Simulated scan of single mutants.
Amino acid sequence: MTQRSMQPLQGATLLALSALLFSGMGVLISIASATVNNENIVFFRNLVGVVFFLPLLLAKGLRPFKTKRIKSHLLRTSYGLAAMYCFFYAIAHMPLADAMVFTYSAPVFTPIIAYFWLKEPLTKRMLVFSLLGLLGVILVAKPSDALFGSLSLVGLAASLLAATAFVSIREMSDTEPAYRMVFYFALFSSLISAVPLSWAWQPLSSEQLILLCSAGLLAALAQIVMSRAYTLAPPGLIGPVAYLAIVFAGVFSLILWGEVPDLNSIIGAALIFSASLLSVFWRKR
């Protein structure tokens, strides 16, 4: 048993990298979702994560993956997979801009959950920076009035579940390395998501398989980097850095589809960058 690490600068840097990888994954899933159903997308996203570890399994066997915390891994998988399905449901039934607000609002809840679960410090500054980043997300996403409809409860549940999953990573970080947490998440998620796939399977073309496998690979890398980030610093402290994902998504939209951001989007991006930097450097100073 070791103490949980406290390296906010390194953790924030890795979390920013994971946000970039998750944004790239989001672009691939967005393209694939035009012709592939959610059940297939979720399954392949997780299955590729298991395949990602095959070289390590062949080289080292099961020894690196031995754990005494199967229950913790199952709980983390339950939170993360439930959040994933809620996010996909919100995207399918709400305007995309509204769903994006919920997708990126999890950092608001992480410091509160971490305080009650792990007894990690909760300061007004953490909450202010989290809300500042969320304000930036709203300016970028430009949600509609549907944001306050009944379906918003699904999006809210997704955010709470995702935040709980982030904190659970931190909770296991005293004994579990990042790669082991990602392996069990991918393994259990693949087994669980295979159940709805049994009645929702659809034949896939080679182009669709390439998209899904590429998205799964980026997801596996992003999960490893994110898990490592949360082992280095409390999620409540570096959480606002995760908002950078929506900025990276905007950059991808500009490069790939020529979508030029308006003034509100630029102001929102500036707020997100400010919240991300202040959350780390203000405390460090």
Rank of each mutant, 00 (worst) to 15 (best):
193 S>L: 08
227 S>V: 07
130 S>R: 02
210 I>N: 12
93 H>I: 10
11 G>P: 03
201 W>P: 07
34 A>V: 11
123 T>I: 13
160 L>I: 07
198 S>Y: 10
77 T>Y: 11
205 S>V: 07
11 G>T: 05
249 A>W: 08
285 R>D: 12
198 S>H: 07
261 P>T: 06
95 P>I: 02
212 L>G: 06
257 W>R: 10
234 P>L: 04
112 I>G: 11
18 S>C: 06
264 N>H: 14
149 G>L: 10
170 R>W: 08
233 A>K: 00
221 L>A: 12
263 L>V: 15
236 G>E: 09
45 R>G: 00
2 T>W: 14
14 L>E: 09
205 S>M: 06
136 G>E: 04
120 E>T: 03
155 G>K: 02
254 L>S: 06
181 M>T: 12
107 P>D: 06
148 F>M: 11
280 V>L: 04
188 F>S: 03
130 S>N: 09
188 F>V: 07
87 F>Y: 14
67 T>I: 02
21 L>F: 04
228 R>K: 13
51 V>W: 15
33 S>N: 12
99 A>E: 01
215 A>S: 10
267 I>A: 03
15 L>N: 10
154 V>T: 09
86 C>N: 01
204 L>I: 05
11 G>Y: 07
214 S>M: 09
223 Q>I: 05
70 I>Y: 14
196 P>T: 03
103 T>N: 14
160 L>K: 04
121 P>R: 12
119 K>T: 08
19 A>P: 01
232 L>P: 03
70 I>M: 15
95 P>L: 00
80 G>H: 05
263 L>T: 15
264 N>A: 15
255 I>W: 11
4 R>M: 10
172 M>D: 08
11 G>E: 08
246 I>L: 09
